[in-house]
Design a protein around this nucleic acid. Structure first.
Lengths: 145, 145
DNA sequence: CTCAATAGTTGACATCATCAAGTATCAGGC
DNA sequence: GCCTGATACTTGATGATGTCAACTATTGAG
């Protein structure tokens, strides 16, 4: 038994901040299914669509790594997206084992729609002052580095 | 066709902030499966465990609402958690149709372990100054209101 | 050229999630 | 009391998500 299991790294403030982040994360997690359903997508498909940027082909393996899931799972996800005409597999010129994914026109439009809806800020964000909003932008930018 | 579909409510700053939040959200979403696997849980089970606070029984229906999923899905999720001895169904004294969920000792310990790991702040958070961390706490608190 | 490693697919299987239908209970009106 | 409609949960059917092991094709090192 590890009696130090409850001792966390990081300052008390950073722990408190991250606890709130986890709260927010779970709240957002519950938000995704209904939002996805409006576009006839699943949460996982939204995640994939979010990761394929238009004009920036991505190898399937890299997608699996970013999603932190098994490669064979990506095969199925892409199968369904491709059968809906949102995505296309293309051979990689550099390595014939690799297939890269590109968005179709339809896929690109749907992705824009999805990101548009997801990134519409909740009311609570609008109640912050402008300086607070800017502080948040600055802080989040550094968190994502 | 709604030609204003791309016009977002909220100030430019709040939109930018929320775009970053969505980035963070997807990154965290990819983080959950490996973390859950360490505890032999699925992401969905983590979400459920997070929502059942020790000593605070919650009706199954309320769980379905918070998860934004169908009631029958909760039945299956709870079946598996109960068969692992993490959760128990108990009849509600107020309404015999309702079953409330309580954590077992094991479930409570596992939940603590889970939240402990999830709320361990990433390195990037520790690189912020203390005043920035406090500002983040203040802002996130208001976002969750 | 051989051989281990890598990228992706396939099939088997558990979980997640929805829906429609069913049972039990509740709450209101008669 | 007794209907009747609504609510809480379960069941069974079905599709999506996810893992694993085994497979093919390709790469790259020796």
């Amino acid at each position: 038994m590890n009696y130090n299991a409850h001792v966390k790294p990081g300052s008390p403030d950073s722990c408190e901040a991250w606890q709130l982040m986890v709260q927010l994360f779970f709240a957002q997690r519950a938000n995704l299914p209904p939002l996805a359903a409006e576009l006839e997508l699943s949460p996982a498909q939204c995640h994939v669509l979010h990761l394929i940027e238009p004009g920036r082909p991505i190898p399937m393996g890299q997608l699996a790594e970013t999603l932190a899931c098994h490669a064979s799972n990506v095969t199925g996800l892409v199968d369904r997206l491709e059968s809906r005409g949102l995505v296309r597999r293309r051979p990689s010129p550099a390595d014939r084992r690799v297939k890269v994914l590109v968005l179709t026109q339809t896929g690109s439009r749907l992705r824009t729609l999805l990101l548009d809806r997801m990134t519409t800020p909740p009311d609570t964000l609008g109640r912050l002052s402008v300086s607070e909003q800017r502080a948040l932008v600055r802080i989040l930018t550094r968190l994502l580095e």
